[in-house]
């Protein structure tokens, strides 16, 4: 545990905060486990993120060693990039601009930049730059069906299957049809679920501008009885709180999982089955979630 000042801490929250912020150096050195990394990205203070960014830069100075790669690498790299789409800056299109499309559009041209910047701890922090796998191009109908790119392989390697996906590494934005999907997908099952829903022949989507800026996109497939939530620019929940997703039908709301966000891009595969015609809602709940919503949903989308 990092220590200076720890003894002074006024309570668990502060203690936790210091212990999270104390991961900055290890974060900068890529010396964290996926869980620790996620924790840092989700909870570190801006000052700690800045420090991580600076220390990551310092660390790059350690590697002054130069070794010329074989000439063939250059040719093969140049071939590869020709076949490789870049993250475009084209505006996000709102399929159904439910609420104020204007803010969404205003933000859109910066999607890639925004997601990167939101991942405060490092402009390129590999994770962010792990430009995910935008292989699929920008066709909304087949966004996640591409071969796994480095980011995805990374995600597979680094993320254990999680019950719910935390919104962590804002960076990695998988730009599919203008949607930024975070790299925080938890393991193969989540990756696959996401891909399957988005690529489902009957997939439908609805995009909503959030009140506090940012956008939410719900993509659902009745056939698969699944849905995913994609956020771009959803701020972190207040301390001690988490986001909770709900399926809401005539019988009332039932929990569809908890998740975190950090202001960048967040992808969540909802838990449980989507029944025809349910609404998807999201509320802010105390950590650990609630049996039933205790706050007004800030997002409700009818499927």
């Amino acid at each position: 545990m990092s220590n200076d000042g720890d003894e002074m801490n006024g309570g668990d929250d502060m203690h936790d905060q210091q212990s999270v912020d104390g991961l900055a150096a290890a974060y900068a050195l890529d010396a964290l486990t996926p869980d620790e990394r996620a924790l840092f990205e989700a909870k570190a203070t801006p000052a700690a993120r800045r420090e991580a960014e600076e220390l990551a830069e310092t660390a790059t100075l350690l590697s002054g060693t130069e070794v010329a790669p074989p000439p063939a690498l250059r040719a093969s790299m140049l071939d590869a990039i020709r076949a490789e789409p870049q993250h475009s800056a084209e505006p996000q299109h709102s399929a159904e601009p439910t609420a104020g499309a204007a803010p969404a559009d205003a933000d859109a041209p910066q999607v890639p930049a925004t997601t990167a910047a939101a991942a405060a701890p490092a402009v390129p922090r590999a994770h962010d730059a792990s430009a995910p796998a935008a292989h699929g191009g920008h066709d909304a109908s087949a966004p996640v069906t591409r071969r796994p790119g480095p980011a995805e392989r990374r995600a597979r390697a680094r993320w254990r299957p999680a019950r719910v996906i935390g919104a962590v590494a804002a960076g990695a934005a998988l730009l599919a049809g203008g949607i930024a999907i975070g790299s925080q997908l938890g393991g193969d099952s989540q990756q696959e679920a996401l891909g399957a829903v988005v690529a489902a022949p009957d997939a439908q989507r609805s995009e909503v501008a959030l009140e506090d800026g940012g956008t939410a996109t719900v993509i659902w497939s009745a056939e698969r009885a699944q849905s995913v939530l994609l956020f771009d620019g959803l701020a972190a929940a207040p301390a001690g709180r988490e986001y909770q997703a709900w399926y809401i039908d005539a019988a009332g709301p039932r929990s569809a999982g908890l998740f975190q966000a950090d202001g960048g891009s967040t992808a969540v595969v909802l838990e449980g089955e989507l029944d025809a015609g349910v609404a998807v809602g999201v509320t802010v709940e105390p950590e650990g979630g609630s049996e039933a919503p205790t706050t007004e949903p800030f997002l409700v989308v009818q499927t």
């Binding site: 790669p69 590869a80 990039i81 490789e84 870049q86 990167a116 402009v123 390129p124 792990s130 430009a131």
Partner: peptide
């Protein structure tokens, strides 16, 4: 890995500030 790095840089170049 070096090739992956450059591919990633190419794709994500817009994020470089």
């Amino acid at each position: 890995v070096a090739q992956e790095v450059y591919l990633e840089a190419w794709r994500g170049a817009r994020r470089f500030d």
